[in-house]
């Protein structure tokens, strides 16, 4: 620190002036500090989404039960278990990296990646179950109506008057009984009844409720599965008549938003792990692994709150 202007000018080694000694403001690395700051913003992001969900759900006049919307709690619990396992494996990868056991660290990292991908696979299966029942985040793909009222009735009529659907119904009626399964035989009869009821001149509220129940029944027991028969939409997948789930649209909106954003975060985490796998996982990169692990633990944390709020409440 004794350098004068003259020595600076004549410095042959390329140093330009006094070399300062930086003290870290906090006893943690820059990468870790930034990761924690980022995680606090993520906490607020998910707090906003979760808070809105909680408030919407408890402020709603009526909210669908999990079995009304084909939500499976055991699958959710299994997903929780998968994510917890992946959290353990990423911590073990970090420990292995710090102990300079590079191949072991790589194995744990790969296991974390596989478990994360498994989680996404199960999520995709759950989503496909919702989609196949006509539960989408929004219209027009979403078939959910809130009440069995006149608007629902007219939507059913519109669908049944669709030329393509008329074609298929004619085709279905033409087939002999021997060719069809038992479910299709009863389904065909019920479809005819529903057609008649929807075109009737003096519809009562109860009739519309009966139509809704025939199209997709709301099972009244958690373990009961599909109530009686599973409904017309299930027997004939091409039919895709509008369905009635009271509170269903708000449910679908919040469910897909929360789990969708969480899944995006999982995908980002998997990309980070994929990139990390290209490195030598020794003590030199332990800091990177630790920070990636912090992010992944946060993703697990969000799911720990999401699971009971979405599946069990």
């Amino acid at each position: 620190m004794n350098a004068s202007a003259a020595s600076i000018a004549h410095d042959a080694h390329g140093h330009h002036g006094p070399v300062l000694q930086y003290q870290p403001g906090l006893p943690l690395s820059r990468g870790k500090l930034i990761m924690w700051l980022f995680l606090s913003t993520e906490i607020m992001f998910f707090a906003a989404l979760l808070g809105s969900y909680v408030v919407l759900r408890f402020g709603a006049a009526v909210w669908p039960k999990p079995h009304h919307v084909h939500l499976s709690e055991p699958i959710g619990a299994f997903n929780t278990f998968v994510l917890i396992c992946s959290s353990v494996t990423v911590v073990l990868a970090l420990e292995a990296a710090r102990a300079n056991k590079r191949s072991l660290a790589k194995i744990w990292m790969l296991t974390t990646l596989i478990l994360g991908a498994f989680f996404l696979g199960i999520k995709a299966y759950e989503y496909s179950a919702k989609f196949s029942h006509g539960i989408y985040p929004a219209a027009p793909r979403g078939l959910i109506y809130e009440r069995p009222d006149l608007y629902y009735g007219s939507a059913v009529r519109a669908r049944l008057s669709d030329p393509a659907i008329l074609e298929r119904m004619k085709e279905l009626d033409a087939r002999p009984e021997a060719e069809l399964t038992a479910a299709e035989v009863t389904g065909r009869r019920r479809l005819a009844q529903v057609r008649e009821m929807s075109m009737a001149a003096d519809q009562q509220a109860f009739d519309l409720a009966v139509i809704a129940d025939q199209v997709m029944p709301l099972p009244d027991d958690a373990a009961g599965g599909h109530g009686h028969g599973g409904g017309l939409n299930e027997t004939f997948p091409w039919l895709q008549l509008p369905i009635v789930i009271p509170g269903g649209n708000m449910w679908a909106s919040t469910y897909f938003l929360l789990t969708g954003f969480h899944a995006i975060h999982v995908i980002v985490g998997l990309i980070v792990f994929g990139i990390l796998l290209l490195y030598e996982l020794g003590p030199k990169h332990a800091g990177m692994i630790e920070n990636a692990g912090l992010y992944w633990h946060f993703v697990d944390l969000v799911w720990i709150f999401l699971f009971p709020l979405l599946y069990l409440f």
Binding site: E146, F206, L218, P246
Partner: peptide, 15 residues
Amino acid sequence: HMARPADLLLLEQAA
């Protein structure tokens, strides 16, 4: 237009 508990009851009755 909003859903009410009465709608759930109606659907249950229909079921």
